[in-house]
Computed example of a mutant assay.
Amino acid sequence: MSFLTDHVVVDGVRLAYRDSGSGEPVVFLHGTPSHSYEWRDVVPHIEAAGHRVIVYDLLGYGLSERPARRDTSVAGQTDLFGHLLDALGVEEVSLVAHDIGGAVALRFALAHPGRVQRLMIMDSVSYDSWPSPTWRRIIDEELDSYAALPQEEFDALLTRQLSMTVADTSRMSGDVLRAYLAPHASRLGRTSFFEHQVRHYDARYTQEIAGRLAELTMPVRILWGAEDQWQPVHYAERLRDDIPGAELVVVPDAGHFLMEDAPGRVVHEIRDFLTATPVS
């Protein structure tokens, strides 16, 4: 159910990715609990619009390697992202980033402003917006026991969480739901979810850059689902106010995974952003 096509070894670890199309490069960064499957209805349209599109599974996610000893936090993913660009021979990119991918993109843009031409942030974790009280309790008290859940109980837990990511719950069912659950359909997959994802839900990675957002000078558009239950719109408004010149677009009838609720609108906004903000 993945549309990734290749694998590359970067800084000693294997990443699953897709690099297709031609023209100005655009990189898509996914969130959690997710993998690059979330971009399946978006990426082909951006490729068709004349862009080179790179999308990959973060380390420990999807089809990428799940290493026993490697930092898969937002900070670790940010460092690895830079190595991936180097491996693919890409110097400057536009970024489209969702959820924790948004935190990776913001950190990378602050650390390497000359490499980011444009930045679109979608329903991103920010400031103190994460983890939710449920995930915080699991991290603090019960992570090891949850990592040992039987498959049926794990699937029920993650299904409940995934149902909260969309405004229209019918969109998170059937083959789509199975695709989101698929990377965790084994003991390794379940353990990896808690070790590589949940264990690293930590607001310090966004809090420590909160005071630096005014340093961003590239064009920034913030795209947000009006019905996002995990990242309320007031965080989007705060980002807009803290990032100079940032635009905010709130999509009605869309939740945290707005690319599931409103893929056509997401495609329109990305294409408009890439063409309406020429690189100087």
Rank of each mutant, 00 (worst) to 15 (best):
F3L: 08
F3A: 03
V10A: 08
D11C: 13
G12Q: 14
G12V: 14
R14S: 13
L15V: 15
L15D: 12
A16P: 13
Y17A: 12
P33C: 05
W39T: 05
W39F: 08
D41H: 11
V42Y: 00
V42F: 00
G50W: 04
G50L: 05
V53S: 03
D57H: 06
G60A: 07
E65T: 05
G76M: 01
G76L: 04
G76D: 06
D79I: 11
L80K: 00
F81E: 02
L84H: 04
D86G: 11
D99N: 09
I100H: 01
I100W: 08
A103T: 02
A105R: 04
A111L: 11
P113T: 14
P113Y: 14
G114V: 06
V116M: 13
V116Y: 09
R118L: 14
S124L: 09
P133A: 01
T134H: 15
E141L: 12
E142R: 15
L143T: 05
L143G: 01
S145H: 10
E153G: 02
L157G: 00
T159E: 06
T165S: 06
T169V: 13
D175V: 15
D175S: 15
L177T: 15
G189R: 13
E195W: 06
E195N: 09
Q197S: 13
H200G: 01
Y201K: 04
D202L: 04
Q207Y: 10
I209L: 14
L213D: 05
L223T: 02
Q231C: 03
Y235G: 00
D241H: 11
G245I: 07
A246Q: 08
E247H: 14
L248I: 08
V250A: 06
P252W: 09
A254C: 03
H256Y: 07
L258I: 04
L258W: 06
D261N: 07
G264K: 10
R265T: 15
I270F: 06
R271H: 12
D272T: 09
F273C: 03
L274C: 05
P278G: 00
